[in-house]
Structure formats: C-alpha cells, structure tokens
C-alpha cells in the first residue's frame, strides 16, 4: 500500500480536515488504490516535454486602473456566519503570548 495511515493523518492536517478513525482507515486504502493507478504515468517518457498548466496561451491580462462600483458591504455581511460592528467576526488567530492585535497586553 503506497499511502500509510501516517501519510493520511499528515495530509489531513495540511488540508485542514479533521478525519474520523474510520475515514483515516478508509482513505489509506482508497487513496493508495487511486495513487497506484495514477502512478502509471511515471512510466511515460516526458523528457524535454514542457508542462501545461493551462490550455490557453493567455498571460498577464491587463486593464486600465479605473475605479468601478463594488458590491454592497451589508450584502456580504448578511452571508457571514458571525459579524460585529460591520466586520466579519472570526476566532482569535494569535494567542496571548504572541502579542499583536487581539493579543492581551
């Protein structure tokens, strides 16, 4: 099996997913199957082949820097899980010892 239980736990942490024990077991098996299948492309010779990130030959789309209208702040806030005083309210990001905005002084 190419993907271990430890790999799943590590990747879940990177992806900000809190997986249950059952999910960890299941994903170790399923992701191994998928990755083993996908790994067949490694047999292909791609020496000197440029990667394609995007099918269009477009780059650096520019426009004049003219102010336009924006969407209404109240409309955005109406969709936020929590807000206060015209701002989206989010959990504390810095702990007390880190100082900075929101850090206790």
């Amino acid at each position: 099996m190419s993907i271990t239980r430890e790999d799943v736990v590590h990747v879940a942490r990177l992806a900000r997913l809190e997986l249950s024990e059952d999910e960890i077991e299941q994903f170790a098996v399923q992701l191994s199957d998928i990755i083993d299948h996908a790994a067949r492309i490694q047999a292909l010779d791609t020496e000197g082949v440029e990667p394609t990130a995007h099918p269009l030959p477009l780059s650096n789309i520019l426009r004049d820097d003219e102010p336009g209208s924006t969407l209404d702040r109240e409309v955005f806030l109406s969709q936020a899980p929590a807000c206060e005083d015209g701002y989206v309210k989010v959990p504390r990001i810095l702990d007390d010892s880190a100082g900075g905005p929101g850090g206790g002084t």
């Binding site: 790994a39 492309i41 292909l44 791609t46 082949v49 440029e50 990667p51 394609t52 099918p55």
Partner: peptide, 15 residues
C-alpha cells in the same frame, strides 16, 4: 514532481 508536475507534462502529450 512525481505526480502533479508529471501529470502536467502528460497533459502536453495529450494536446
């Protein structure tokens, strides 16, 4: 490199 970058090169071969 083994997966994502390789897949992007395969994409070029398909094109």
């Amino acid at each position: 490199d083994a997966y994502y970058a390789k897949a992007q090169r395969v994409r070029t071969l398909v094109i």
